[in-house]
């Protein structure tokens, strides 16, 4: 299988495809990294928020009558409508994110980290299976907003969807970076992740800040969900599981707690997966986990993470 002849052009082309894939990983990874930064909790349910993001963008289109019945004529969806879908999805995911934090994680704020981790797994299971009941386990097909066109970029082909994904993701990431670095709530978030107790003593509204962290992480995940749905329109309630795990790997690779790290980790993972995918698509799924184990062994703090010292 590995003896397949592959030209270097094909590899570069795949690497370019990997950038758009990696951009989505990055969007999801920031949610993991921000929550881990403030609560030291791996929010296993984050992959499910991404899945819900895609579904929440699907339903406005359905209500507006843009989803054809079985075998029906596909109506043309106006491009502006994607904005409606994204906004609805962002709002709904932000609400879900805050709800999860309020109901499941806040009561466990002072419990052991193990209890919190298991609760996170429980929430993830709940959302997965709840969605299976609510949305049905048969796949839903996201409407096409754009006709697929190829854009020539030098010697490589990029589809217009891929360009959209990269641009939207880049804008969202830069926006998030500015928010965290330049605004007051952003400063509060950094303060809470630096030292929760001191932040509280300094008058920071810790509970509000944590809720905000969940809301923003969920919004980023919902953008990721919509972007993926534009590229691969098949939605299933289980689509968040593997995606979430991989995005988490991206967060670890970049250094958990660091937002630029999540972006870098996402891109590296996306490119690595796509390049391996030139030879074998099934092995591509293993890439993330091999990277995970290597990173944990060689540099557990990740590429851009801070090294913490273990206190006795």
């Amino acid at each position: 299988m590995f003896l397949l002849e592959v030209t270097s052009e094909q590899i570069f082309q795949q690497a370019l495809n990997g950038v758009s894939k990696g951009a989505v990983y990055a969007l999801i990874a920031v949610g993991y990294t921000m929550v881990y930064g403030v609560l030291q909790l791996i929010n296993f349910a984050h992959g499910e928020v991404y899945m819900l993001g895609a579904y929440f963008a699907y339903y406005p289109a359905k209500w507006a009558g843009y989803i054809p019945d079985e075998g029906g004529e596909k109506p043309k969806v106006p491009l502006y409508f994607i904005g409606v879908c994204i906004l609805f999805s962002m709002a709904a995911c932000a609400a879900i994110g805050m709800l999860i934090e309020r109901l499941a994680y806040r009561p466990l704020r002072n419990a052991s980290r193990l209890a919190a981790l298991i609760t996170a797994i429980g929430v993830s299971l709940l959302l997965q299976n709840g969605s299976q009941i609510m949305f049905g386990s048969d796949p839903k097909y996201f409407p096409r907003f754009m006709d697929r066109e190829s854009v020539q970029l030098g010697m490589f082909d990029v589809s217009n969807t891929q360009v959209t994904i990269m641009v939207v993701a880049a804008v969202a990431m830069i926006g998030l970076h500015l928010f965290v670095q330049k605004t007051k709530p952003g400063m509060a978030m950094r303060a809470v992740s630096f030292d929760m107790r001191t932040a509280r003593l300094m008058g920071v509204n810790v509970d509000g800040t944590i809720a905000l962290t969940f809301a923003i992480g969920s919004i980023m995940a919902s953008i990721g969900g919509v972007l993926i749905a534009m590229d691969q329109p098949r939605l299933t309630p289980l689509m968040g599981l593997l995606m979430g795990l991989k995005a988490f790997v991206a967060a670890v690779l970049g250094g958990i707690g660091s937002i630029p790290g999540a972006a870098l980790g996402g891109l590296i993972l996306g490119i690595a997966e796509s390049v391996v995918g030139t030879w074998s698509t099934t092995y591509a799924d293993a890439v993330a986990f091999v990277i995970l184990i290597l990173v944990l062994l060689v540099k557990p703090s990740g590429l851009l993470g801070k090294t913490g010292r273990e206190k006795v």
Binding site: P107, A111, T119, I121, G122, L125, N129, G130, Q132, I133
Partner: peptide
């Protein structure tokens, strides 16, 4: 006639267990 409800119950039990009797 609610396929999948058992996994929902299962996950709810898990979350409640962690909150009330970790």
């Amino acid at each position: 006639d609610l396929p999948g409800i058992r996994m929902v119950v299962y996950s709810l039990v898990l979350i409640l267990l962690m909150i009330f009797r970790p």
